[in-house]
Amino acid sequence: MSAVGLIQRLAPGVRWARRLAQIAFIVIGIATVNFFLLHLAPGDAAEVMAGEAGAATPEFMAALREQFGLDQPLYIQFGKYLGNVLTLNLGYSFRQGLPVSRLILDRLPATALLMAASITFALVAGAALGFLAARRAGHLTDTIISVIALLFYATPVFWIGVVLIVIFSVWLDWLPVGGMATIEAGYQGTAYALDVGRHLVLPAVTLGLFHLAIYTRLTRASMLQIYGQDFVRTAVAKGVAPGRIAVRHVLRNALLPIVTMLGMQLGSILGGAILVETVFSWPGLGRLAFEALFQRDLNLLLGILLASSILVVVVNIAVDLAYGFLDPRVEIS
């Protein structure tokens, strides 16, 4: 208690400084663990490139290792890496011949677009379905929604993706199979935006369905829990309209776990994207990270992991702040 009291007495500036120091500590810790964990993997980037070439000579391998800095002892590699982390330099991908920051920035818009679209879809549709199920708890609507949610929750993402492709692209011919734009068409402006939109539908839906199921179940469960509380009974007794109760009193109070989930979904931005980006040839970050792992492009992979760990930390803070906003009883320390 005294520690909390002490923090509360400190000026907000000091509190934030303390918080930032914590973040820096966490990020450096993650970076260190990542570095050594990834270096445990057998094989290196030079071997992978020689393997892909199908043939190599000792001289070629030595030239690659020297170029990649792999001929240096591990502690020197780690020192360089740590120096880069401290100066927020993400390093250089020798395999791709480009700085890691450039590679990430090139891929970020595609992933961000896919994420935004799928999260919006999952959140809006999931909350709506959960709301409907909670209001009709025990009825047929509720059962149907719950079964559908369970189905989406249990079905592997890549399988949904392939099935959607077969139905909507191959059979019905409504939407493109994959990619982000019709390359040979050379669209500009609005036509380009529409074209990207058409390419976005299937991957966004595929990626969103799993989280849609989670939001549906969460919304339903937490609304039902709140329906049982005294203030709702009071509102009913006062004669407030059921719809108003559901929205103003129940849904608003049920939002907290959903915000938690949203934070977690944002944090898993890369993990979920890998499969969907692969199935739909979407040129995003998830695939970049996944391929970097198999290619032992550790600079690139470490860069992506560092960037995403920073993102997760930042999202966590944002979620904490959102709690305070949604429910003033939650204190931010």
Partner: peptide, 12 residues
């Protein structure tokens, strides 16, 4: 075009 998934390649 880079199409990493085998099923998607077959579909295209």
């Amino acid at each position: 075009r880079v199409i990493p998934d085998g099923a998607a390649r077959a579909a295209t």
